[in-house]
Design a binder for these strands. Structure first.
Length: 937
DNA sequence: ACCTTCACG
DNA sequence: GACGTACGTGAAGGTG
């Protein structure tokens, strides 16, 4: 039937449908494999109600279509590049459901329309116009306020959730103006959801008032001078351009070059077989029954899960019941392109895949890819060997690539579109590793989930987050150990020497485990209330860290080498002196031998210690002994040089990558319980700075030609957070006034006026300030300050008297920890404190940890937020972020761009807590520039 | 594999 | 009343 007079078109806002279904319904997964399908089910319900007439009182359609958003980039981004820029990321269990809703629409035999470069709203606007022009009418099935501008003669809206028609009266109620002026009001009021700027300070109410007074937006802007209220007048004059841009953003385009004609959208009866097949595939039992009854055909059978265990038992151990047993013999070895194509097709159909890579090294910058494993269904996984070579027994030790493996280039070319496909979720365990392996081969893995990070977000402080541990804890399965395959010590070999059959069992199981972990952990994120932590603090950091690690930092070998020699010489001199003073030669580096020399031979005072019964010879002991004898002082000097040489000047040289000439650390995102990062291989977070000799090692960290190193660090961030969390007015005011916080503390405590402050008094106050952050004790402070314990306790008492809020904070935090067995940062990160209610000495550690974790953890969260925002903020500048050292970020920047980079990064860092959290104290970032790290810091 | 020591925030 | 104590890390070298 041709569309014309009497025809009625229903335009369904598909994306809105999906989101409403997703948020309105509890998370639901397909029984057989855990695929999230809740939103799909809600979508199908709504769609079925639409086409079957349902329980609605609206007019029945003669024509119908579902409109989707094809992409997030549209012509509006050209008008305003921040359009929709602050949209939160899609929930990870919603993303794979998008392609399924398209499939569902087609299964219902309803036209499914989307167009690259246009939002669904514009397509809807266009069809609404076409419908009325053809003499018919249209109903927009949505409750989105952005569509309300379309309401008018022949066009109304229908809110399917509230079963309510939205016509002119409802629009007037919402906006205070009729549909024809909705755009004007929106342009003024802006929209925080879509990031439409509007006019600052003007909301819906004021906007409607102004439009009603002046008639329309153009008149208002032209006559802005006449507005009586000075602030309003100024805002409109100053932001006229921004308001006009906003209008272009909110105005829907009614002439999108749509391809489907109105006629082609005529309502069609669903093909019952195709529809029921789809519903059965989704395992929607109720819906399948309802629809098959209505269509008068028999419902297809849907297999029930293998075990129909009672509910209580199921809740106790869901993983064991719903998952098939592990069976390494069932894993497939993919040896040709045909088999690989089948796997890729399965993945494209599913919308997600667990991925794992096998390589020749744990160092991603040197590792060669050996094989890839994939899994989309528990118990089913494959391994794709790519670079296995003959075993090590080969006569010349030469690597002969084994037959029966796909050409690596060909395999990667086939996998690349899938790995980069925005609708396919890639699941990994520590996926930063695999992402770097792929990135080195030009493949940008996205989007992704990481089971290690999920575990960290939920269980930090409870256990570690390695795959073996997670598998045993949450899947009750001990993975195949890697040790027997790789050997150890002299006989150790790399994974490419492992036989392909053994490799398949091991590697495919890793993908299988990762998939099952994802299915087990992902739904728990919501229940544990840490989805936000995972999605804003953990997942987005992965590509940022990967980039930093791959860039690495330039280290000058010559500088280090010269230092090593100088240290060696000095050490030799000191060693001779020490032997002379001792009257015998011994290994100065052996605490045991040194203890015997000091305490047995020389008879110095200072007894045994430690559970091993050995003499303690730590720096603090030796410093005390130094007043009695010359030898301990020499040993201290020797130790310092020994440390610098072995840990830094020697070791760092070995870490210079021969290909890049740079040092590539590896950041462990789950290394520290508090949310801090840890740096390994090498650790670049503990490069010396406190002594002059050590500090010079930083001269070896240099910028490349034409560049500078730029260092930006938060000033006193933990004390600022303490002042905020514990709510200490005096401390907060001192930070706001930019005062010296330690001097201020000293002045408050000891009554010394600031202008008479001595360095010694200030030093003591500083120690107390830090002590507070660490969960102060009289003993600890006494040892740190080397004062009698009673004196230290008196300091603490005074401190608590002067700042009673601190004591309150400590008490409340410990109380909270005892009640919940965890503590939280300002951003909701949880750090579990399982020992908090224990007896014994463990409880003491747990108490101090509980006091410290929210402070240290909040600081860690803040710099993480900054780091995830920085790549965007410095986009286009010749600047790279290289290192993070807890409260410091180091960049390498072309000289001409140094000032710009500092300005942008500083702004991001100082505002990193916003908009999630308000802090009553300003965050201050200091910057330094130089040719090397010593100058820059 | 564990302990001690010491480098950093 | 005794116990053992600052918080969070990683690397190197000695020892058993």
């Amino acid at each position: 039937m041709a569309f014309g007079k009497g025809s009625h078109l229903h335009l369904i806002d598909g994306s809105a449908f999906i989101f409403r279904a997703y948020h309105a319904l509890p998370p639901l997964t397909r029984k057989s494999d855990g695929l999230p399908v809740g939103a799909v089910q809600g979508f199908c319900n709504l769609l079925w109600n639409e086409i079957s007439g349902g329980t609605t009182n609206k007019s029945k359609p003669t024509h119908i279509a579902v409109i989707f958003d094809a992409s997030s980039i549209t012509f509006r981004n050209e008008i305003y590049d921040l359009y929709k820029a602050n949209r939160p990321e899609l929930p990870e269990d919603l993303r794979p459901q998008f392609p399924l809703t398209r499939e569902a629409t087609r299964a219902f035999n309803v036209s499914c329309i989307e167009m690259e470069g246009f939002e669904a709203d514009d397509i809807i606007a266009t069809y609404a116009r076409l419908a009325t022009e053809a003499g018919g009418s249209a109903t927009i099935v949505s409750s989105d306020k952005d569509l309300m501008q379309l309401v008018g003669p022949g066009v109304d809206m229908w809110d399917p959730m509230k079963s309510k028609t939205l016509a002119e009266a409802e629009v007037f109620e919402k906006f205070g103006v009729g549909p024809d002026r909705v755009v004007d009001v929106q342009s003024l009021a802006g929209d925080s959801v879509d990031n439409v700027p509007g006019a600052p300070g003007i909301g819906l109410k004021t906007a409607a008032l102004l439009i009603n007074e002046y008639g329309d937006l153009d008149t208002l802007l032209a006559r802005a001078e006449e507005i009586k209220q000075p602030k309003r007048r100024q805002t409109l004059i100053e932001h006229a351009e921004q308001i006009r841009i906003s209008r272009r953003l909110v105005t829907l385009s009614r002439d999108v070059p749509v391809e489907d004609t109105l006629d082609s959208l005529e309502c069609r009866t669903p093909e019952s077989e195709a529809l029921l097949d789809f519903l059965a595939k989704m395992e929607f039992r109720t819906l399948t029954r309802r629809i098959s009854e209505k269509l008068g055909v028999e419902a297809p059978a849907i297999a029930e899960p293998a075990s129909a265990a009672p509910k209580a038992e199921k809740a106790a151990a869901p993983a064991e019941i719903e998952h098939p047993p592990f069976d390494a013999d069932k894993y497939e070895c993919v040896r040709d392109m045909n088999a690989l194509s089948v796997w890729i097709a399965r993945i494209m159909d599913k919308g997600f895949v667990a991925v794992d890579t096998e390589t020749t090294s744990l160092d991603e910058m040197r590792a060669e890819l050996v094989g890839i494993s994939l899994s989309v269904t528990p118990g089913e996984a494959c391994y794709i060997p790519l670079n296995h070579v003959q075993g090590a027994d080969d006569l010349f030790g030469s690597a002969n690539r084994l037959d029966g493996q796909i050409d690596p280039e060909q395999a990667l070319a086939a996998l690349k579109p899938m790995l980069e496909d925005a609708s396919i979720l890639k699941i990994g365990q520590n996926i930063k590793y695999d992402a770097k392996i792929f990135a080195r081969r030009g493949i940008n893995v996205a989007p992704f989930d990481d089971t290690m990070l999920m575990s960290y977000a939920m269980f930090s402080g409870l256990h570690n987050h390695g795959m073996d541990e997670l598998s045993e804890t949450y899947l009750n399965h001990k993975p195949i150990p890697i040790k027997p395959l790789l050997g150890s010590g002299k006989t150790a070999r790399t994974f490419d020497k492992v036989g392909i059959e053994d490799a398949t069992k091991y590697a495919a199981e890793d993908a299988d485990i990762t998939l099952r972990l994802w299915q087990s952990l992902r739904p728990r994120l919501h229940r544990e209330r840490v989805t936000n932590v995972y999605e804003t603090l953990e997942r987005p950091l992965v590509p940022v860290l990967a980039q930093m690690e791959m860039h690495g930092i330039r280290v000058d070998r010559q500088t280090l080498s010269r230092m090593s020699s100088a240290f060696a010489q000095k050490m030799a001199g000191l060693e001779a002196e020490i032997h002379d003073l001792a009257g015998e030669t011994f290994n100065v580096g052996s605490p045991k031998q040194l203890g015997e020399v000091l305490f047995d031979k020389l008879g110095l005072q200072g007894g045994k210690k430690g559970k091993t019964g050995a003499y303690s010879t730590g720096a603090d002991i030796l410093e005390d002994l130094a007043t009695e004898h010359e030898l301990p002082g020499r040993v201290l000097d020797w130790r310092q040089l020994s440390k610098l040489k072995s840990t830094y000047t020697d070791a760092l040289q070995d870490h210079i990558n021969p290909e890049t000439g740079r040092v590539h650390t590896s950041y462990q995102q789950t290394g520290a319980n508090t949310g801090r990062l840890a740096s390994t291989d090498p650790n670049l977070q503990n490069i010396p700075i406190r002594t002059e000799e050590g500090r010079r090692i930083r001269e070896a960290f240099v910028a490349s030609e034409g560049h500078k190193l730029v260092s930006l660090d938060y000033s006193q961030i933990e004390l600022r957070i303490l002042a905020h969390i514990a709510d200490i007015p005096a401390l907060k005011q001192a930070f706001r006034d930019g005062h010296d916080i330690h001097a201020m503390t000293a002045s408050e405590m000891f009554g010394v006026p600031l202008d008479q402050m001595t360095p010694e008094v200030r030093r003591q106050a500083k120690a107390i300030n830090f002590g507070v952050i660490y969960g102060i004790s009289g003993f600890g402070l006494a040892r740190n300050l080397r004062i009698p314990r009673a004196e230290a306790q008196a300091f603490i008492d005074t401190y608590f008297e002067r700042f009673p809020g601190i004591r309150d904070y400590m008490d409340k935090t410990i109380e909270f920890a005892k009640a919940h067995a965890y503590v939280e940062t300002l951003f909701g990160r949880r750090i579990h404190t399982p020992e908090i209610n224990a007896k014994g000495p463990g409880a003491g550690f747990a108490r101090r940890g509980a006091i410290n974790a929210p402070i240290q953890g909040t600081a860690a969260d803040i710099i993480r937020r900054a780091m995830t925002r920085i790549p965007q903020a410095i986009e286009g500048l010749p600047a790279k972020m290289l290192l993070q050292v807890h409260d410091e970020l180091v960049f390498e920047v072309e000289e001409s761009a140094v000032d710009d980079t500092i300005a942008r990064v500083k702004a991001v860092m100082e505002g990193a807590h916003e908009p999630a959290v308000e802090i009553d104290v300003p965050l201050i970032v200091d910057a330094g520039v130089g040719d090397n790290w010593a100058q820059a810091h």
